[in-house]
Amino acid sequence: MAKSLRSKWKRKMRVEKRKKNAPKELSRLKSILQMDSDVLMKDVQGIATMVVPKHCQEQTQCVTEIKRNRKSLIDQHGQHPIRTNQRQRKRLKAK
Rank of each mutant, 00 (worst) to 15 (best):
D38S: 12
Q88A: 13
R91D: 00
R6D: 03
R6N: 02
Q86Y: 13
S4N: 01
E65H: 03
P53E: 02
T64C: 03
L92D: 05
K19W: 01
C62R: 13
K93G: 00
V39N: 07
R87E: 08
Q86S: 12
D43N: 13
M35K: 15
R87M: 04
R91M: 12
K42W: 01
K12N: 03
P53T: 07
Q61E: 02
I74C: 03
M50I: 08
K67V: 11
S4W: 00
M35H: 12
D75Q: 12
S37G: 13
P53M: 09
K10F: 00
N69A: 05
K42I: 06
K3E: 00
I74L: 15
T60E: 07
M35L: 14
V39D: 03
L92Y: 07
K19I: 11
E58G: 10
K17S: 08
L73P: 01
R68L: 06
R14M: 13
V63R: 15
Q57E: 11
V52W: 04
D75Y: 14
C62V: 04
S72Y: 14
L26N: 05
R83I: 12
Q34H: 12
Q45E: 13
A22D: 08
Q86T: 13
K19P: 06
L29T: 03
C56V: 06
D36W: 06
P81F: 14
L40C: 12
Q61N: 13
Q76H: 15
T84C: 08
R87V: 02
I32S: 05
R6V: 01
L73T: 03
I47R: 14
R18S: 13
V63K: 13
I74E: 07
T84H: 14
D36R: 09
A94P: 02
K10I: 02
M41Y: 00
Q57S: 11
T49V: 10
G78L: 12
H77C: 02
Q86L: 09
Q88K: 11
Q34V: 01
D75W: 15
M13C: 06
V44G: 00
P53L: 08
N69V: 09
L29P: 01
P81D: 04
K20H: 14
A22Y: 14
I32T: 07
R11I: 00
E58L: 04
I47P: 03
H55W: 07
Q88Y: 12
R6Y: 06
V44P: 03
K54Y: 09
E25L: 13
E16W: 02
S7G: 02
C62P: 01
V51I: 14
Q59N: 04
A2F: 00
S4I: 01
K8M: 04
R91N: 01
R89Q: 04
V52N: 06
D43I: 01
L73H: 07
R70M: 02
S37M: 08
P23L: 08
M41V: 07
A48V: 07
K24P: 00
N85R: 09
V63G: 07
K10S: 12
D38V: 02
M41S: 03
R28S: 12
V51W: 08
N21T: 15
M1N: 01
N85C: 10
I82V: 13
N69Q: 11
K3H: 02
T64A: 11
I66D: 02
Q76C: 11
L73R: 06
D43Q: 10
Q34E: 15
C56T: 09
E16K: 15
L33G: 04
T60I: 05
L5E: 04
K42V: 02
Q57I: 07
T49L: 09
